[in-house]
Design a protein around this nucleic acid. Structure first.
Length: 274
DNA sequence: CTCCAGGCTTTAG
DNA sequence: CTAAAGCATGGA
């Protein structure tokens, strides 16, 4: 068992996990069990520090993006002189953008469309329980995220029976296609080509493509716009009603390469009404 | 009962 | 091109 210690100021378990970028975690009295791909760790904190206990320290050091200076990122975000964003940064200071497994993100955000977070979590848990491998970490049972070939072997009706609703064929068709092409080629595409490629999948539209680009491939010039960001745009940025693509472009023009970071602080602060 | 959830696809105008 | 209906499911 390895243990990583990191200053709590820029690494808060609740901020990192409950800001909507990850769905597979379980809350305990003192901390969280966090699951990614086929690995798990236990995450908790006290006044001074946040602690990661795991069997693969290198994996989770990268997963939690611990090599990046988030104090500097917050400073940069504040330099845009947006009172709404600056307030969000202050309230979600412990947030970080995770480096998550691409294929897990692709399927997770397909499931997320027109859906609420508790049910997204339930759906993903059902997929993992049925198609993933059973694992054990410190006495806790969990399931790995299934491979694309395991996902591709099941029919659409299987996913409907798991409670995924009309997204059943999106999952099945995407799995089928990724089984043929693999997932790795996506990371070599530039931002524009990646988004175009993602949009060619059934069930992936603009918002989900932006989430995948940001959360799976760290394309921080992406700014996903969902119902909450739309609400924020209208209420807090006094924007006029517009399409989501236009709203995304509006924010990207302001924040540039920092769009993805700005989006997370704004989204979390708005949704959690912090 | 209706409305909404980190929307997308299809169809109509 | 933009606008709106239809789509499963469950929680508020």
């Amino acid at each position: 068992m390895e243990k990583i210690t990191y200053p709590a100021a820029e690494f808060n378990p609740r901020d990192v996990l409950e800001c909507g970028q990850i769905f597979r975690y379980k809350k305990f009295e003192k901390g969280y069990l966090v699951v990614s791909k086929d690995k798990a760790c236990y995450l908790y904190s006290d006044e001074k520090s946040t602690y990661i206990e795991c069997d693969d320290g290198d994996y989770f050091y990268n997963f939690f993006d611990l090599g990046r200076d988030y104090a500097a990122i917050i400073e940069k975000l504040k330099s845009f002189n947006s009172p709404v964003l600056s307030t969000a940064c202050d309230k979600c200071r412990g947030l970080r953008l995770l480096n998550q497994n691409p294929q897990e993100m692709i399927f997770s955000f397909i499931v997320s469309q027109n859906n609420n977070i508790p049910r997204i979590q339930k759906s993903l848990e059902a997929i993992c329980k049925n198609l993933g491998e059973e694992k054990n970490f410190a006495g806790e049972r969990y399931f790995s995220f299934p491979s694309v070939s395991a996902l591709a072997e099941k029919s659409a009706s299987f996913y409907k029976e798991l409670g995924l609703g009309y997204r059943d064929e999106y999952i099945q068709k995407t799995a089928e296609r990724l089984k043929e092409s693999g997932v790795d080629y996506l990371k070599d595409l530039d931002d524009a080509a990646l988004k175009k490629e993602l949009l060619s999948f059934r069930g992936i539209g603009g918002k989900v493509a932006d989430c995948i680009a940001l959360f799976a491939f760290k394309r921080t010039s992406s700014f996903p716009v969902d119902t909450w960001i739309e609400k924020l745009y209208l209420e807090d940025f006094k924007g006029k009603p517009a399409g989501r693509e236009a709203i995304s472009k509006y924010f990207c023009n302001i924040f540039g390469e920092y769009s993805g970071y700005a989006q997370q602080y704004l989204f979390y602060a708005k949704r959690a009404s912090l």
